[in-house]
Design a binder for these strands. Sequence first.
DNA 1: TTTAGGATGAAGTCAAGC
DNA 2: GCTTGACTTCATCCTAAA
Length: 584
Amino acid sequence: MDGNTSGEDGNDIDWNTEDELEIDNFTLSSSSSLTVPGGEPVVGCGESSSSPGPSNSKVVDHFIGMGFSGKMVAKAIQEHGEENTDSILETLLTYSALESSPQAQQQVDCNPCSSDNEGSFLDDFSDMDSFSDNEEIINPTSEKEKKMLSLVNMGYTVEEASIAIERCGLDSTVVELTDFIFAAQMARAEDVNFPLEEKPRPNHAYKKRKLLEYEMLKKKRQMRLGNQTTGEDDETVHLPNPMVGFGIPSEPCLKTQRNLPEGARGPPYFYYENVALAPKGVWTTISRFLYDVQPEFVDSKYFCAAARKRGYVHNLPLDNRFPLIPLPPNTIHEAFPLTRKWWPSWDTRTKLNCLQTCIASAKLTERIRKAIEDYDGEPPLGVQKYVLDECRKWNLVWVGRNKVAPLEPDEVEMLLGFPKNHTRGISRTDRYKSLGNSFQVDTVAYHLSVLREMFPNGINLLSLFSGIGGAEIALHRLGIPLKNVVSVEKSAVNRSVVRSWWEQTNQRGNLYDLDDVQQLNGDSLEHYMNLFGGFDLVVGGSPCNNLAGSNRHHRDGLEGKESSLFYDYFRILDLVKCIMSKNN
DNA sequence: TTTAGGATGAAGTCAAGC
DNA sequence: GCTTGACTTCATCCTAAA
């Protein structure tokens, strides 16, 4: 398969449903003709009331007779006048539906994209602005109602929508209104005194906009799955024991075939990574968003001398995987033979624990030295336990008599499969941090190895949360030419590491490095995809800060400040799938 | 301002024992 | 089945020194 060609797997996917439009157009009345971002009018599909408006109380009786409350009917008539029965009915149906079940009104087929609608991408909220503007032109008398509909369609209550419009003004865009509501919601959630009168600060606007995207994505997901997802958030994804995924080099044939859900089939191939030991429900959510693909949980201790329990969600084939050669050292003593001389018999470790972003201090190693130096032979069991606990916790190795030490950065590089001195040149603290947040290259390469036969002429890669380029290095070491790489990484230090590696390895392709996944929208993606014909692979390991057990302060799950960027991975992947589907 | 050191547990998995 | 304890965890915040 050529790098620029699309696979056939995705051809049977129904890409044609007007998903975004269905999300936006919650209205139940056929009388509602709205203009969408692409400029095409969309007509609702519900029943309409086209009968001429009867006069006075007959209108009230008419709607009360249909089952609406008198109060609701009066309010609707007050808003639209007795003659405008279509609008009255539309409002009544909306209010009624919202009172019963807002979610129930969104039972629509929600395909990931609208292939006929130019520019109608989920991330592009300027579309929503224009949506409002167009409404204003078409039907200025119902502007408030339409804006309320847009807001309640996003999951806000009628009360929240009404207050937002009242406080921000009728001229406000939908985005401004949602920003306002989010500011209030966040303030309530954090129990912070955030007066409703206070307009959201500009520097918070983008964050709240992201949260809006997240809410919409969640709804989109719920709609796609229908009632199946209701109440299933606590469903636990069980971790395999042993954690060997679908196979490891020493046991490669555990599973070679699987039936991917239809929505997961490429193009492009995708590969997502995060910590396996995340709070309950996280992997269920990740799996649901990523097209119901079951995660592959792998501990990198089966690939190298250090544990690294990670979950990988991908749509790659499973057969004919092969490991990177040479195989990395598999035990501590193989990796660090000089430690063997000083290693006490009562330290039975053969593997290191997970390599993290911080290391033990010199004072701790000094305390350990003092704790054991008084004993000529083996220290008492209590001392042994203290020392072993600290050694396991901080991944200490024996470097002298009674002397333990943390791993040096270049040793961490080696264990994780990076080239020697890959991160050299940045501060020691940054090296540990960047390495601790990176892929284990051999593990990732084993999964990606199936791409080598498919892309002999090279690959176009979209690398999100690139870090220090673990995915790029894995592909390079696999012998897969990197034709075009769009690498998105927030840290300038990490970007410089990847750029330096790119130049030192004499890559013939093109590296485009960007700094913020949140600013990667449909337009920029289309730009790059038109430039070189689409992406073959979308890789990303979004921040784990709020998922990792080591985080004592903000282990907030996928709703955490950093870890919520997972939804940007999904958003961008979904956009790429949409654009590629549209272009084929 | 940058860098490094030190103090700070909870949440979850797993195996053993009952 | 349940309980218990051992074990593990891509970290954050504050302070001091350079």
